[in-house]
């Protein structure tokens, strides 16, 4: 564990908590893409299956349980409790165009052809594009509440911090996973134009407007 990975995990946890609080306090999931949240739940489910038979550390186990619980909790709030506020008209990104290629790629490019490794690889590929429905929805609605942009900033920062963690581990000549690194770079690049808008607009108190 290093400071970059710890900050990355905490940024990820912060993003999920910001989203849960936003939905719970405003009792609304307006502007939030349920499809992206659904993809995140798939990512965590496929990746954390080893929860039950490998123990890496208490931190690792606790965080996996928290991420699984909060992602399914968010789905519950969006699709059941506050279903009436879910904006399905703007949440229309075809997620099968993300899931199917991730499955195909995981079967083709992986480190070991075992069920656990294929699922882990699938979760890495899917996570790199899982935010697209949310970014698509923000560009369709043309704007996002500031709390949603804080959520996106924390979520985008998590994998950017992981890139710093991989650089740090490279200097320590620790084992690295090329698949996770390439996918993590792609994932972070997808946030770049949002990061630009966030840093130049939202932090100056303006609304976040994505070019439609």
């Amino acid at each position: 564990m290093n400071i970059f990975r710890l900050l990355g995990d905490l940024s990820h946890l912060l993003a999920i908590i910001i989203l849960l609080l936003k939905i719970w306090n405003s009792r609304s999931c307006a502007g939030i893409s349920g499809r992206s949240q659904f993809l995140f739940a798939i990512v965590f489910t496929a990746r954390y299956l080893d929860l039950f038979f490998t123990f890496i550390s208490l931190y690792n186990t606790v965080m996996k349980i928290v991420f699984l619980a909060t992602s399914y909790g968010t789905l519950y709030l969006m699709y059941i409790k506050f279903k009436a506020t879910y904006d399905s008209n703007h949440d229309t990104f075809r997620i099968e165009f993300l899931i199917l290629p991730a499955i195909a790629l995981a079967l083709l490019i992986n480190e070991e052809f075992t069920v656990i490794e294929i699922l882990w690889t699938f979760s890495i590929y899917l996570e790199s594009v899982a935010i697209l429905p949310q970014l698509f929805m923000v560009s369709k609605t043309g704007e996002a509440e500031s709390i949603t942009s804080h959520y996106l900033f924390a979520l985008g920062s998590y994998r950017a911090l992981y890139i710093l963690n991989w650089i740090y581990r490279w200097f320590l000549t620790e084992k690295l996973n090329a698949i996770a690194i390439v996918a993590g770079i792609v994932q972070t690049i997808l946030y770049c134009d949002f990061f630009y808008l966030y840093l130049t607009k939202v932090l100056k108190g303006k609304k976040l407007q994505l070019p439609a």
Partner: peptide
């Protein structure tokens, strides 16, 4: 310390 395919990152 980890076998080749144990993923220690979240």
């Amino acid at each position: 310390q980890y076998e080749q395919h144990e993923h220690d990152e979240l």
